[in-house]
Amino acid sequence: MTLFERVREALAGFGPMREVEMPGGVVFEWDGDALAGVESGVPRVRVEDGWATPADHDLAGAIQQAADVVLAECVLRWHDQLRAGGDDAYRAMLGLVHHDQDREQLQRLLLAHTRGPVQGLRQLAVTCLGHVGRLDRAVLPEVLGRLEELIDDPDLGGTAENALGDIERHTHPFLLWRRHQSAWVIFAPPGDPEVARQLALVEEPDVVVVVPHAETLPSLREYVLGLVREVEARTHTVDEECGLLLADPAKPGLRFVLEYDGDIAALQPLLNDWEDLVAVVKDHYLLAW
């Protein structure tokens, strides 16, 4: 493998690179910033005060450090572009969502833009708050409050609802209070606080049935399969056009929480056969459909 190929391979994990031919070699640019290159047959990488030649055995490590330097420069530039507004602000906001290390500052910046004068940036800021929840699996409490405020906004309501749903799906292992948006059967430890918190959010006519002492049930797999079939029968409808079983939004939601005093993760191979049941471990819960 040539040196050029080795540098290109080491850069493969950093996203799209632009290769720019220069006198005596090639420079690889990420988001318009030079990150690495090959000059007169010698590898070169960015460092804080310019360029350096890495040791041959540490090319990958040197490129990672160069990427950190370039990314820090990009974050500063994106903040400037976002403050300036204009066409570059949209791409800058997306770049910050993925790469700004100060996540609290980022969320407060996005919250400020949900109140800004530019409609396009307001809408993108709402969407980006959902992206933060998906990427970080956590958001500031004021993010949820702001998105709930915006649900009734005639321009941003739909976007806010989508962002809120994105956050909820990625910050909670399951969603008991959201109709048809959670596992049908959930194994949880007895007295689990997350289950108790979510049960308080469930509104009629949706129903969540809590089954205590599930560890004592005989034929557990058959029992869970019976619950799954009950959920299918009571909440789904066969679509006449495609013949598929689809959740019916007009029907109340139904879920079962099985309190299990034991090794919940060990139940997965018992339940998961990919034919009648699908079981997935998430955090310290087991979710089954």
Rank of each mutant, 00 (worst) to 15 (best):
I63A: 00
V69P: 03
V70Y: 00
L71C: 06
A72H: 02
E73W: 10
E73I: 03
C74N: 15
V75G: 00
D80M: 09
D80F: 08
Q81C: 04
L82E: 01
R83Q: 03
A84F: 10
D88M: 04
A89N: 05
A89G: 07
R91T: 13
R91A: 15
A92F: 09
A92N: 02
M93Q: 15
L94T: 05
V97H: 02
V97I: 09
H98K: 12
H99M: 06
D102E: 00
Q105Y: 04
L106G: 02
Q107Y: 03
R108A: 02
R108N: 06
L109K: 05
G116H: 12
P117V: 02
Q119S: 10
Q119T: 10
R122D: 05
R122H: 07
L124E: 12
L124K: 03
V126A: 11
T127H: 09
L129Q: 10
G130L: 08
H131P: 06
R134W: 12
R134D: 09
D136V: 04
D136H: 01
V139T: 06
P141M: 11
E142M: 13
V143Q: 09
G145C: 08
L150R: 08
L150F: 07
D153R: 14
P154I: 08
A163I: 08
L164S: 05
L164A: 13
G165A: 09
E168A: 15
R169H: 12
H170Q: 06
H170L: 10
T171N: 13
H172G: 11
P173H: 02
P173R: 05
L175W: 08
R179T: 09
H180C: 09
S182H: 03
A183F: 08
W184F: 02
V185C: 05
V185P: 01
